[in-house]
Nucleic acid binder design. Structure first.
Lengths: 166, 166
DNA sequence: AAACGAAACGTTATTCCATATCAAGACCTC
DNA sequence: GAGGTCTTGATATGGAATAACGTTTCGTTT
Protein backbone atom coordinates (compact mmCIF):
# COMPACT_ATOMS: atom_id res chain seq x y z
CA UNK A 1 0.00 0.00 0.00
CA UNK A 2 1.53 3.30 -1.03
CA UNK A 3 1.42 5.62 1.92
CA UNK A 4 1.61 8.61 -0.39
CA UNK A 5 0.56 8.15 -3.98
CA UNK A 6 2.15 11.46 -4.95
CA UNK A 7 5.60 10.29 -3.93
CA UNK A 8 8.09 8.83 -6.32
CA UNK A 9 8.54 5.12 -6.66
CA UNK A 10 10.30 2.47 -8.68
CA UNK A 11 8.71 3.40 -11.94
CA UNK A 12 10.41 1.01 -14.34
CA UNK A 13 9.50 -1.78 -12.01
CA UNK A 14 5.87 -0.83 -11.78
CA UNK A 15 5.63 -0.64 -15.57
CA UNK A 16 7.10 -4.08 -16.02
CA UNK A 17 4.89 -5.44 -13.26
CA UNK A 18 1.73 -4.06 -14.74
CA UNK A 19 2.51 -5.27 -18.24
CA UNK A 20 3.38 -8.70 -16.99
CA UNK A 21 0.26 -8.93 -14.93
CA UNK A 22 -1.86 -7.78 -17.86
CA UNK A 23 -0.26 -10.37 -20.11
CA UNK A 24 -0.87 -13.06 -17.56
CA UNK A 25 -4.47 -12.01 -17.07
CA UNK A 26 -5.16 -12.03 -20.79
CA UNK A 27 -3.49 -15.37 -21.27
CA UNK A 28 -5.50 -16.84 -18.42
CA UNK A 29 -8.75 -15.47 -19.78
CA UNK A 30 -8.08 -16.18 -23.45
CA UNK A 31 -8.10 -12.49 -24.29
CA UNK A 32 -6.02 -11.07 -27.10
CA UNK A 33 -3.43 -8.72 -25.73
CA UNK A 34 -2.74 -7.29 -29.16
CA UNK A 35 0.11 -4.93 -30.10
CA UNK A 36 -2.15 -1.89 -30.02
CA UNK A 37 -3.57 -2.77 -26.62
CA UNK A 38 -0.15 -3.58 -25.27
CA UNK A 39 1.33 -0.37 -26.56
CA UNK A 40 -1.52 1.82 -25.29
CA UNK A 41 -1.15 0.39 -21.83
CA UNK A 42 2.59 0.82 -22.00
CA UNK A 43 2.24 4.43 -23.10
CA UNK A 44 -0.09 5.18 -20.22
CA UNK A 45 2.14 3.39 -17.72
CA UNK A 46 5.20 5.21 -18.95
CA UNK A 47 3.67 8.64 -19.01
CA UNK A 48 2.19 7.97 -15.60
CA UNK A 49 -0.30 10.78 -16.00
CA UNK A 50 -3.80 11.17 -17.29
CA UNK A 51 -3.70 11.38 -21.07
CA UNK A 52 -6.34 12.41 -23.55
CA UNK A 53 -7.31 9.84 -26.14
CA UNK A 54 -5.86 11.96 -28.89
CA UNK A 55 -2.54 12.32 -27.11
CA UNK A 56 -2.25 8.57 -27.04
CA UNK A 57 -3.45 8.37 -30.60
CA UNK A 58 -0.82 10.72 -31.94
CA UNK A 59 1.87 8.70 -30.24
CA UNK A 60 0.47 5.52 -31.75
CA UNK A 61 0.31 7.16 -35.14
CA UNK A 62 3.94 8.23 -34.93
CA UNK A 63 4.80 4.56 -34.49
CA UNK A 64 2.60 3.36 -37.34
CA UNK A 65 0.23 1.54 -35.04
CA UNK A 66 -3.02 3.07 -36.16
CA UNK A 67 -3.98 6.63 -36.79
CA UNK A 68 -7.76 6.86 -36.39
CA UNK A 69 -9.71 7.59 -33.22
CA UNK A 70 -11.53 4.25 -33.13
CA UNK A 71 -8.23 2.43 -32.83
CA UNK A 72 -7.32 4.06 -29.56
CA UNK A 73 -10.87 4.15 -28.23
CA UNK A 74 -11.26 0.44 -28.83
CA UNK A 75 -8.02 -0.27 -27.06
CA UNK A 76 -8.99 1.99 -24.18
CA UNK A 77 -12.36 0.31 -23.97
CA UNK A 78 -10.71 -3.07 -23.71
CA UNK A 79 -8.21 -1.89 -21.11
CA UNK A 80 -10.81 -0.19 -18.95
CA UNK A 81 -13.21 -3.12 -19.16
CA UNK A 82 -10.55 -5.33 -17.72
CA UNK A 83 -9.33 -2.87 -15.12
CA UNK A 84 -5.91 -2.02 -16.53
CA UNK A 85 -6.86 1.55 -17.21
CA UNK A 86 -9.24 4.03 -15.59
CA UNK A 87 -11.04 6.92 -17.13
CA UNK A 88 -10.91 10.25 -15.32
CA UNK A 89 -14.31 11.69 -16.09
CA UNK A 90 -13.40 15.10 -14.85
CA UNK A 91 -10.63 15.37 -17.40
CA UNK A 92 -12.01 13.23 -20.19
CA UNK A 93 -8.72 11.44 -19.94
CA UNK A 94 -7.28 8.05 -19.13
CA UNK A 95 -4.69 6.75 -16.73
CA UNK A 96 -3.11 3.38 -16.10
CA UNK A 97 -4.35 1.60 -13.03
CA UNK A 98 -1.93 2.15 -10.19
CA UNK A 99 -3.25 -0.61 -7.97
CA UNK A 100 -3.59 -3.65 -10.17
CA UNK A 101 -5.29 -6.51 -8.49
CA UNK A 102 -6.83 -4.40 -5.76
CA UNK A 103 -10.56 -4.66 -5.40
CA UNK A 104 -11.71 -2.02 -7.76
CA UNK A 105 -13.63 0.89 -6.46
CA UNK A 106 -10.90 3.41 -6.98
CA UNK A 107 -11.02 7.07 -6.12
CA UNK A 108 -8.84 9.76 -7.60
CA UNK A 109 -7.19 12.92 -6.40
CA UNK A 110 -6.56 15.35 -9.21
CA UNK A 111 -4.24 18.31 -8.81
CA UNK A 112 -5.69 21.29 -10.60
CA UNK A 113 -2.27 22.93 -10.88
CA UNK A 114 0.01 20.20 -12.23
CA UNK A 115 -2.69 17.74 -13.27
CA UNK A 116 -1.10 14.89 -11.39
CA UNK A 117 -3.57 12.16 -10.60
CA UNK A 118 -3.29 9.79 -7.66
CA UNK A 119 -5.35 6.68 -7.29
CA UNK A 120 -6.43 5.45 -3.93
CA UNK A 121 -8.62 2.54 -2.94
CA UNK A 122 -11.89 3.12 -1.14
CA UNK A 123 -13.21 1.18 1.78
CA UNK A 124 -16.21 -0.16 -0.04
CA UNK A 125 -18.40 0.47 -3.07
CA UNK A 126 -20.82 3.32 -2.87
CA UNK A 127 -18.64 5.17 -0.41
CA UNK A 128 -20.77 7.39 1.68
CA UNK A 129 -23.93 7.06 -0.31
CA UNK A 130 -24.73 3.44 0.21
CA UNK A 131 -27.35 4.45 2.75
CA UNK A 132 -28.94 7.03 0.47
CA UNK A 133 -29.01 4.55 -2.38
CA UNK A 134 -30.62 1.88 -0.31
CA UNK A 135 -33.21 4.30 0.95
CA UNK A 136 -34.00 5.34 -2.61
CA UNK A 137 -34.05 1.79 -3.90
CA UNK A 138 -31.20 2.56 -6.24
CA UNK A 139 -28.87 -0.26 -7.20
CA UNK A 140 -25.32 0.99 -7.49
CA UNK A 141 -23.20 -0.74 -10.11
CA UNK A 142 -20.27 1.60 -10.37
CA UNK A 143 -19.17 4.75 -8.64
CA UNK A 144 -17.01 7.59 -9.83
CA UNK A 145 -15.16 9.45 -7.11
CA UNK A 146 -12.87 12.23 -8.17
CA UNK A 147 -11.52 14.90 -5.88
CA UNK A 148 -9.98 18.01 -7.31
CA UNK A 149 -7.58 20.18 -5.37
CA UNK A 150 -3.89 20.73 -4.79
CA UNK A 151 -1.25 18.05 -4.49
CA UNK A 152 1.41 18.38 -1.78
CA UNK A 153 3.96 19.82 -4.19
CA UNK A 154 1.69 22.45 -5.66
CA UNK A 155 0.43 23.50 -2.26
CA UNK A 156 3.90 24.85 -1.59
CA UNK A 157 4.64 26.44 -4.91
CA UNK A 158 1.21 27.73 -5.82
CA UNK A 159 -1.01 27.72 -2.78
CA UNK A 160 -3.14 30.47 -4.13
CA UNK A 161 -3.58 31.00 -7.85
CA UNK A 162 -5.40 28.86 -10.32
CA UNK A 163 -3.43 30.36 -13.16
CA UNK A 164 -1.68 28.86 -16.18
CA UNK A 165 1.29 27.74 -14.11
CA UNK A 166 1.15 24.46 -15.98
CA UNK B 1 -35.30 15.94 3.08
CA UNK B 2 -36.68 13.84 0.28
CA UNK B 3 -36.84 10.28 1.45
CA UNK B 4 -36.70 9.08 -2.11
CA UNK B 5 -35.34 11.37 -4.76
CA UNK B 6 -36.70 9.19 -7.55
CA UNK B 7 -40.27 9.72 -6.41
CA UNK B 8 -42.57 12.30 -7.87
CA UNK B 9 -43.12 15.60 -6.19
CA UNK B 10 -44.78 18.96 -6.60
CA UNK B 11 -42.84 19.94 -9.67
CA UNK B 12 -44.40 23.28 -10.52
CA UNK B 13 -43.80 24.32 -6.96
CA UNK B 14 -40.17 23.29 -6.93
CA UNK B 15 -39.56 25.20 -10.16
CA UNK B 16 -41.06 28.37 -8.80
CA UNK B 17 -39.19 27.92 -5.53
CA UNK B 18 -35.86 27.45 -7.20
CA UNK B 19 -36.30 30.41 -9.52
CA UNK B 20 -37.39 32.64 -6.68
CA UNK B 21 -34.51 31.60 -4.54
CA UNK B 22 -32.07 32.15 -7.38
CA UNK B 23 -33.49 35.60 -8.00
CA UNK B 24 -33.23 36.43 -4.34
CA UNK B 25 -29.68 35.16 -4.13
CA UNK B 26 -28.60 37.19 -7.14
CA UNK B 27 -30.29 40.30 -5.87
CA UNK B 28 -28.64 39.89 -2.51
CA UNK B 29 -25.22 39.38 -4.07
CA UNK B 30 -25.55 41.99 -6.80
CA UNK B 31 -25.34 39.37 -9.50
CA UNK B 32 -27.06 39.78 -12.83
CA UNK B 33 -29.73 37.17 -13.26
CA UNK B 34 -30.02 37.89 -16.96
CA UNK B 35 -32.70 36.54 -19.30
CA UNK B 36 -30.39 33.88 -20.71
CA UNK B 37 -29.34 32.71 -17.26
CA UNK B 38 -32.91 32.77 -16.03
CA UNK B 39 -34.15 30.86 -19.01
CA UNK B 40 -31.40 28.24 -18.89
CA UNK B 41 -32.14 27.55 -15.25
CA UNK B 42 -35.84 27.42 -16.01
CA UNK B 43 -35.29 24.98 -18.86
CA UNK B 44 -33.24 22.71 -16.64
CA UNK B 45 -35.74 22.91 -13.82
CA UNK B 46 -38.64 22.17 -16.14
CA UNK B 47 -37.00 19.27 -17.91
CA UNK B 48 -35.92 17.94 -14.54
CA UNK B 49 -33.33 15.73 -16.15
CA UNK B 50 -29.71 15.98 -17.11
CA UNK B 51 -29.45 17.87 -20.39
CA UNK B 52 -26.56 18.26 -22.77
CA UNK B 53 -25.37 21.79 -23.42
CA UNK B 54 -26.49 21.55 -27.02
CA UNK B 55 -29.97 20.40 -26.04
CA UNK B 56 -30.32 23.52 -23.98
CA UNK B 57 -28.79 25.58 -26.73
CA UNK B 58 -31.23 24.43 -29.38
CA UNK B 59 -34.12 25.28 -27.11
CA UNK B 60 -32.64 28.72 -26.51
CA UNK B 61 -32.11 29.16 -30.22
CA UNK B 62 -35.74 28.29 -30.95
CA UNK B 63 -36.71 31.15 -28.67
CA UNK B 64 -34.29 33.63 -30.16
CA UNK B 65 -32.18 33.82 -27.02
CA UNK B 66 -28.82 33.03 -28.49
CA UNK B 67 -27.75 30.33 -30.83
CA UNK B 68 -24.04 29.75 -30.32
CA UNK B 69 -22.29 27.45 -27.86
CA UNK B 70 -20.61 30.16 -25.77
CA UNK B 71 -23.99 31.60 -24.88
CA UNK B 72 -25.14 28.48 -23.14
CA UNK B 73 -21.73 27.61 -21.74
CA UNK B 74 -21.41 31.00 -20.12
CA UNK B 75 -24.83 30.72 -18.60
CA UNK B 76 -24.08 27.23 -17.35
CA UNK B 77 -20.81 28.43 -15.93
CA UNK B 78 -22.55 31.14 -13.99
CA UNK B 79 -25.24 28.82 -12.74
CA UNK B 80 -22.82 26.13 -11.64
CA UNK B 81 -20.49 28.62 -9.98
CA UNK B 82 -23.34 29.75 -7.81
CA UNK B 83 -24.73 26.33 -7.10
CA UNK B 84 -27.98 26.51 -9.06
CA UNK B 85 -26.89 23.85 -11.49
CA UNK B 86 -24.63 20.84 -11.29
CA UNK B 87 -22.61 19.22 -13.98
CA UNK B 88 -22.83 15.46 -14.30
CA UNK B 89 -19.35 14.56 -15.45
CA UNK B 90 -20.28 11.06 -16.35
CA UNK B 91 -22.83 12.31 -18.85
CA UNK B 92 -21.23 15.56 -19.91
CA UNK B 93 -24.58 17.02 -19.01
CA UNK B 94 -26.16 19.49 -16.63
CA UNK B 95 -28.98 19.33 -14.14
CA UNK B 96 -30.70 21.86 -11.93
CA UNK B 97 -29.79 21.64 -8.28
CA UNK B 98 -32.45 19.69 -6.45
CA UNK B 99 -31.41 20.75 -2.97
CA UNK B 100 -30.95 24.49 -3.10
CA UNK B 101 -29.46 25.91 0.01
CA UNK B 102 -28.14 22.61 1.27
CA UNK B 103 -24.46 22.52 2.04
CA UNK B 104 -23.03 21.61 -1.26
CA UNK B 105 -21.16 18.42 -1.57
CA UNK B 106 -23.78 16.68 -3.61
CA UNK B 107 -23.64 13.12 -4.89
CA UNK B 108 -25.61 11.74 -7.78
CA UNK B 109 -27.28 8.49 -8.63
CA UNK B 110 -27.58 7.99 -12.37
CA UNK B 111 -29.84 5.35 -13.86
CA UNK B 112 -28.13 3.77 -16.84
CA UNK B 113 -31.46 2.65 -18.28
CA UNK B 114 -33.69 5.74 -18.14
CA UNK B 115 -30.98 8.31 -17.42
CA UNK B 116 -32.82 9.69 -14.45
CA UNK B 117 -30.51 11.51 -12.07
CA UNK B 118 -31.13 11.89 -8.37
CA UNK B 119 -29.19 14.25 -6.18
CA UNK B 120 -28.44 13.43 -2.59
CA UNK B 121 -26.42 15.26 0.00
CA UNK B 122 -23.31 13.71 1.50
CA UNK B 123 -22.28 13.73 5.10
CA UNK B 124 -19.16 15.75 4.56
CA UNK B 125 -16.72 16.83 1.89
CA UNK B 126 -14.24 14.27 0.66
CA UNK B 127 -16.58 11.44 1.50
CA UNK B 128 -14.60 8.36 2.20
CA UNK B 129 -11.29 9.67 1.02
CA UNK B 130 -10.67 12.39 3.52
CA UNK B 131 -8.26 10.09 5.32
CA UNK B 132 -6.40 9.13 2.17
CA UNK B 133 -6.15 12.77 1.13
CA UNK B 134 -4.79 13.84 4.48
CA UNK B 135 -2.26 11.06 4.44
CA UNK B 136 -1.13 12.09 0.98
CA UNK B 137 -1.07 15.77 1.84
CA UNK B 138 -3.66 16.48 -0.82
CA UNK B 139 -5.95 19.44 -0.28
CA UNK B 140 -9.43 18.63 -1.53
CA UNK B 141 -11.36 21.57 -2.96
CA UNK B 142 -14.19 19.83 -4.71
CA UNK B 143 -15.35 16.27 -5.04
CA UNK B 144 -17.34 14.59 -7.77
CA UNK B 145 -19.36 11.60 -6.64
CA UNK B 146 -21.49 9.90 -9.23
CA UNK B 147 -22.96 6.44 -8.89
CA UNK B 148 -24.28 4.65 -11.92
CA UNK B 149 -26.79 1.85 -11.68
CA UNK B 150 -30.49 1.15 -11.85
CA UNK B 151 -33.22 3.30 -10.40
CA UNK B 152 -36.10 1.63 -8.56
CA UNK B 153 -38.37 1.78 -11.60
CA UNK B 154 -35.89 0.30 -14.04
CA UNK B 155 -34.89 -2.45 -11.64
CA UNK B 156 -38.35 -3.90 -12.16
CA UNK B 157 -38.60 -3.51 -15.89
CA UNK B 158 -35.01 -4.20 -16.93
CA UNK B 159 -33.22 -5.89 -14.07
CA UNK B 160 -30.71 -7.71 -16.20
CA UNK B 161 -29.41 -6.48 -19.53
CA UNK B 162 -27.02 -3.69 -20.19
CA UNK B 163 -27.44 -4.19 -23.87
CA UNK B 164 -28.84 -2.02 -26.64
CA UNK B 165 -32.24 -2.00 -25.01
CA UNK B 166 -31.89 1.74 -24.66
C1' DA C 1 -25.31 64.25 -18.88
C1' DA C 2 -20.91 62.49 -20.70
C1' DA C 3 -17.18 59.34 -20.09
C1' DC C 4 -15.48 55.24 -18.37
C1' DG C 5 -14.80 50.34 -16.95
C1' DA C 6 -16.66 45.88 -16.02
C1' DA C 7 -19.58 42.36 -17.18
C1' DA C 8 -22.40 40.00 -20.38
C1' DC C 9 -23.65 38.91 -24.96
C1' DG C 10 -23.23 37.76 -30.14
C1' DT C 11 -20.69 35.59 -33.83
C1' DT C 12 -17.25 32.96 -36.24
C1' DA C 13 -14.26 29.43 -36.16
C1' DT C 14 -11.66 25.78 -34.26
C1' DT C 15 -10.20 22.09 -31.22
C1' DC C 16 -11.06 18.08 -28.78
C1' DC C 17 -13.80 13.97 -27.34
C1' DA C 18 -16.39 10.05 -28.89
C1' DT C 19 -18.92 6.90 -31.83
C1' DA C 20 -21.39 4.91 -35.99
C1' DT C 21 -20.60 2.34 -39.97
C1' DC C 22 -18.68 -0.54 -43.37
C1' DA C 23 -14.92 -3.26 -45.30
C1' DA C 24 -11.05 -6.24 -44.76
C1' DG C 25 -7.79 -9.16 -42.24
C1' DA C 26 -6.30 -12.32 -38.27
C1' DC C 27 -7.36 -15.93 -35.27
C1' DC C 28 -9.57 -19.86 -33.36
C1' DT C 29 -12.72 -23.74 -33.53
C1' DC C 30 -14.61 -27.46 -35.47
C1' DG D 1 -10.39 -25.38 -44.76
C1' DA D 2 -15.05 -23.35 -43.71
C1' DG D 3 -17.32 -20.51 -40.67
C1' DG D 4 -17.61 -17.57 -36.77
C1' DT D 5 -15.63 -14.22 -33.81
C1' DC D 6 -12.63 -10.70 -32.80
C1' DT D 7 -9.66 -7.04 -34.28
C1' DT D 8 -8.24 -3.62 -37.22
C1' DG D 9 -8.49 0.12 -40.99
C1' DA D 10 -10.72 3.95 -42.88
C1' DT D 11 -14.29 7.37 -43.58
C1' DA D 12 -17.51 10.20 -41.68
C1' DT D 13 -20.06 12.45 -38.30
C1' DG D 14 -21.98 14.12 -33.95
C1' DG D 15 -21.40 16.34 -29.71
C1' DA D 16 -18.60 19.02 -26.09
C1' DA D 17 -15.88 22.96 -25.11
C1' DT D 18 -13.16 27.04 -25.93
C1' DA D 19 -10.46 30.83 -28.53
C1' DA D 20 -10.69 35.13 -30.29
C1' DC D 21 -12.93 39.22 -31.50
C1' DG D 22 -16.20 42.78 -31.34
C1' DT D 23 -20.45 44.96 -29.45
C1' DT D 24 -23.91 45.99 -26.12
C1' DT D 25 -25.45 47.02 -21.51
C1' DC D 26 -25.18 48.79 -17.10
C1' DG D 27 -23.50 51.02 -13.11
C1' DT D 28 -20.25 54.41 -11.54
C1' DT D 29 -17.65 58.47 -11.69
C1' DT D 30 -16.99 62.95 -12.77
Amino acid sequence: MTANPFRDHDHAHCIADALTSAEAYCAAHKLQFTPVRHRVLEILLTKHRAMGAYDILSQLAAEGLGSQPPVVYRALDFLTRHGFVHKIERLNAFIACALPGAAHTPAFMICRACHAVAETPTDRPGVGLGAAAQEAGFEIEETVIEAEGLCPTCRKTAPRTEGPAA
